[in-house]
Structure formats: C-alpha cells, structure tokens
Design a protein around this nucleic acid. Sequence first.
DNA 1: CTGTTAGCGCGTTCAA
DNA 2: TTGAACGCGCTAACAG
Lengths: 353, 353
Amino acid sequence: MKRSQKTITIQDVARKAGVSVSTVSRVMNGKDDVAEETIEKVQAVVHELGYASSLAARGMRSHRTNVIGLIMPDVASYYCQEIMRGVNREIARLDKDLIIYTSGVAEKENIAQHERSYVALLNGSITDGVVVVTPTATQFSTHAPLVIVDPNNETPDYLAVIATNREGALAVMKYLTGLGHRRIGYITGRMELTSSKQRLQGYKDGLDAAGIPLDGDLIAVGDYTTETAAVCARKLLALPDRPTAIFASNDMSAMGVYQVAGELGLQIPEDLSVVGFDNIREAALLNPPLTTVDQFIEKMGSTAIKVLVQMVKGETISSNSVEDNLFKIPTQLVIRESCASMSQHSPEQSTGS
Amino acid sequence: MKRSQKTITIQDVARKAGVSVSTVSRVMNGKDDVAEETIEKVQAVVHELGYASSLAARGMRSHRTNVIGLIMPDVASYYCQEIMRGVNREIARLDKDLIIYTSGVAEKENIAQHERSYVALLNGSITDGVVVVTPTATQFSTHAPLVIVDPNNETPDYLAVIATNREGALAVMKYLTGLGHRRIGYITGRMELTSSKQRLQGYKDGLDAAGIPLDGDLIAVGDYTTETAAVCARKLLALPDRPTAIFASNDMSAMGVYQVAGELGLQIPEDLSVVGFDNIREAALLNPPLTTVDQFIEKMGSTAIKVLVQMVKGETISSNSVEDNLFKIPTQLVIRESCASMSQHSPEQSTGS
DNA sequence: CTGTTAGCGCGTTCAA
DNA sequence: TTGAACGCGCTAACAG
C-alpha cells in the first residue's frame, strides 16, 4: 500500500543540493543567470528526488498556470466527445494543459449549482480560464476568462460559441419542401435546451417560407433519445394523413424513425423521407445513409479554446464571425440517400381524407 | 469580452463585511462558533461579491482538497467511458470532486512523460490522490496515494485494479472447445498492452487444456479496431483449412469479423462461430447477438476510487480480493447466439486437406 | 465569539 | 551568480 507521507518540496531539493530555494526555482524556470554546474547539480537532485513543483503554490504566486479548465455536462455523449476532441486538439497545438470536470453526475436540481461551484473551484487558482459546455447556470462568480459552448439560456455577459441551429433546420426544410413534401413531421429534442428550441424555430420558419400552414399534430415532443423518438415516430405515422417526411431534431432520434419505419414495413426513402441533425458517425452507416446537418461540433470545441486563450493573453477577440458576444459556427446540410422527392414516392395507399 | 481583472479574495470579503479574514474563513467552512448575525452578514457579502475560495490556497494550507484526479489515455473509447461512468458514480456517492486529465493527445513517445508530469501536477497540490488508467509509465514521482487501473507494465509499487483477462479468455476457449471447435482463429489486440498479452495467453492456455496444438497461422495480429480486425478476419477465413470459430480479443474486433462474414456469405453461427471480449452495449444488438466476456469495466472504475479514497483517509485496504497489490475484478462469459456447436454446423464444403 | 499570528510551497524582488 | 526576505490566499492555532 506504499504510502510515503511527506510530499517533497523545493526546500528538500535546495537542502540536498546545497543551494538556496531561489536557486532551485531559477533552475526550474530556466532562467539563464545560473552557473552551468549549479544547474546540473540541481537537476540531478530534482531527478533523484522526483521533485515537481506544486501547481497550487506556483499558480498562487505567478497567477498563470497554463492550464485550461473544461466543464462538461457529461463525457459519454457523442456531442461531448466531439467537443473534447476539438478541445484536445487545440490544447495540444497551443501547448497548454487541460483539466476536465463533469457536472453531469449530480441530480438535475443541482447542476447549475455544481457548475457555478466548479467554475469557482477551477478559476483563479489552478486554471487560467474556463470553457463551460451547455451550461444550465447563467451566472458565474468568476472574474477570469470564461467561454460558453452552446448556452442553454441567455448569457449576455459571456462570450459563447454556438451552432447555427435555426439556419441548419431551415436548410433542411428548404430541401424537403423543394423535394415537394408538404406533410413534414417533426420530432423535437429536449425542449428546455436552446438548441432544441432553435431547431424547432427553423422547422416552423421553413414551413412558413414554403407557405405551408403549421399543423400541431405533426410536431412530436422527443428528448434527443432513440427510444423516445421511436414513440414519436409511431404516433406521427399513425396519423390519418401521415407525413411523407420526418425531420428528427438529431441523428439519434432519426435512428428511432428508421426503426419504426422498419416495423411498419415502410421503405426509406420511397415511402418516407427522413432527415436528422448532427451528422454523427453512424449517420453515414445507416441503411440508407442518413441525410443530416453537420454542425461541426469538434470545431466548436477548438474554437472555444482558441478564443479563450486569446482572452487569457489579454488580446482582443478578432473575428468577423463574432457579433453580440456570439461565435457562430455555420452548419451544413449533408445530403445522402434518406430522402426522395414526392414524384418518386411509391404511389401507396392514399391514407387520410 | 467582459474581463474584470482582479480576482476577489477573502480579504476583500473581510474588509467589506467589517470582520477579519479568519472570521470569513470560519463562515466559509461552516464552523459553529460564529454569531448568527455575523454569519449572515458575511454570507451576504460573499454572495454580493461572488466570492469563492481559491482551491490552490486552500489545498496548500489544509493539505486536503477533497478532489480526486483521474488520468486517462483518452476520453473517447468505450473502455474509458465505462471507467469514467464508474468513477463518476463513486465520486458522487462519496461526495468528492473529480478532475480528469487526458494524456492521449500527445505523440506516442511522450505519453509516459506526460503521465508522469500530470501525476506530479495534480498531486500534492490540488488533488488528494490520483487514479491512472492503463499507464505507459511505470514509475511516478509522487508520494501521494495512487491507484492504477489495468497497468500495462509491472508496477509492483502501486496498487492496481485489473480484470482477469487470461481467465476470461480461458473461459471462452473452454466454451468453444466444449462446443467441439478445434480450428479456432484468434485476433489479437494491441500487443504492447498487457490486456492483449493476457488474453492471448488465455487463448493459448485454452488450446493447451483441450490438447489442441498451437497453429501460428490461426493467430492474426490486430489492434482492437474494427478495421484491422476485418483485415485479420479476411486472412483467417482465406486459410486452406479455415477456422470454424474466431475469437476476437475485443468486441470492436468481433464486429470486423461479422462484417467479413457478411461479405463472404458466411452465416453466423452456422458457418462460423464468433466470440468477442468486453461486452460493449452494441454486442447484444448485433445480429446475431454476440457471445462475449463481460469485464465489468465500470466496476473497475468505481473500485479504483473506493480504494483510493480509503488510502487517502489512511485506512488500511481491507479486501479478500487483493493480493500482490492487485485488485482482481472477475470477468464473466456472456453466452448469446453467435456460437454453434460443431454438430450443428452447416455440412459445408469441406475445405482444406 | 472574534481578531491576531504564523506558516503552507513557491516565485520574485533586492542585496550581497 | 547566489541567498534572504517577502507575499500570494488561505486555514489553524492561540489569544483576547
């Protein structure tokens, strides 16, 4: 169980090397005003003792730790993984260090509280700045640089990186209506999330742009999961005048639609067109490959870090894509094979009135 | 870009509240020897100023941060996600905080170095103890509690949590040979990893136990990925006397075998039995459901935390499952529908000699 | 009950 | 070129 008690400090090194602590400090920080042989002697002792300076003490003094904090709702979802991928890449490129904290373990009620306390925890002590992903909280008690990815609320005080959810959904609707669809079902995400609200707005606006009246029956409330989406799809497809296309607000939900279409013996895209959102890896592997919207999640992660590091350095944020404190990462429609134009649709049993 | 410079300290609170810093400290830490009205006054100021104590300073003084560090090779793999799930659960249960660090972004060469520096970084300053997952390094310069999950080397100095890889593979071989298979192909994992070596050993021992001579041609070197496994499977199934069963050293690899079997028009399990290792979620969803070995990865994560926290508290590790500094988490064979006994095999073209 | 004092381990002056 | 002294923000001991 091996548990040597004392943590070894700069003092131990100094004593053993027969120099003062400040000399050791100079060697550790690569100052050039130290005699060559002193450097070697100190380094030898450092190596022998396995000394490493304490982040806490160092950060406390120098007010710069070279560490970036990342606060995420979870680490298991595809979304978060992509964010982390982008963050990691950028952190490596900038030669910074990264510390991740997950707030998702707490019960729903406490998430905002947890987020706030973690911002406070990381901030100003061990971290130069913090990126918070899809925060529940709107206000953070920190005076250090902070960037938000996909805010779920209005957070005018902080710089945020967001995907153009509404525009992405709008592009889908334009595509679908262009294909001749007029009965388009929609499966929402978790409606408390901004992303979900914005995508729904895009759906409505798309309908509007095509001059199609909104039919509440065609909107089913999901929660971004495959299971719930399947329930929604079943409801939608049981409608008297059932939709010829279903727009699921994320790819996981679209997979639920695929599943139900299979159960009902509906061919995609001949009998039913399906569109998702996110462009997760599996989207291209589905049968048929899913048409969806790529929102470049990874890029959102790397952008957040890039911006944060600029803030840490005290640079002014320069970009043409920033307005109202928002960094918009444009989405892109990825057309694959899950949609057919109405003219190609199977001339099936004309259900409904 | 909102960037108030000064970080607010306990001093600011004390001054504004008209009390001393120690009183503020007492209130913050919930000491009971403070007057009710003083508490309220201080809390009001704390709230107003958005004050949060610095982890760095706090940890430096009290030598106890209540924070556990977790160092992982990556955060994207199924394995790591399961570990995190277990870790998260236990952290929440014990009311600790968690900080995750990923070493996987670096180039291969530097991983060990990175790991070591991160152990040093987290340790003794901002963390009470550290869990390192599948480390490349063998030696860490820390004198604080440290637990290793799935060591890839001999690390006799540290307590480690491991899955019984060899025994798991042995169980598979016993099952397969019991079904009458004698030509059993094997796809290895990344051979530099201990888990991979141990599983291979289990394969060999299983052959031995059944009195089947080892045939080098039946062992294909993979790397735990689906892509490479597919290449391996193609090679294996092109053998003159091709195997009647393939044991893939993880489920991702088994998926590669499924894929190739499909290409070759081989029915599973009628023409080919397949076994995996890991029991990932997708295993049960494959067609047919995959027989595999569950190694309870999540439990490894929670166990590591449990043990580490005991060490932090200075308790002696009490368990019957610990010997030689190793905590063994037993694996379990999960039999589904991807294997058939030889007597049920399609009486196909008898290839080979 | 509250304020004063003394460090925790480190980096950074300022002298020597 | 090196060492002594100070202070970062905080908690714990000791007074009052």
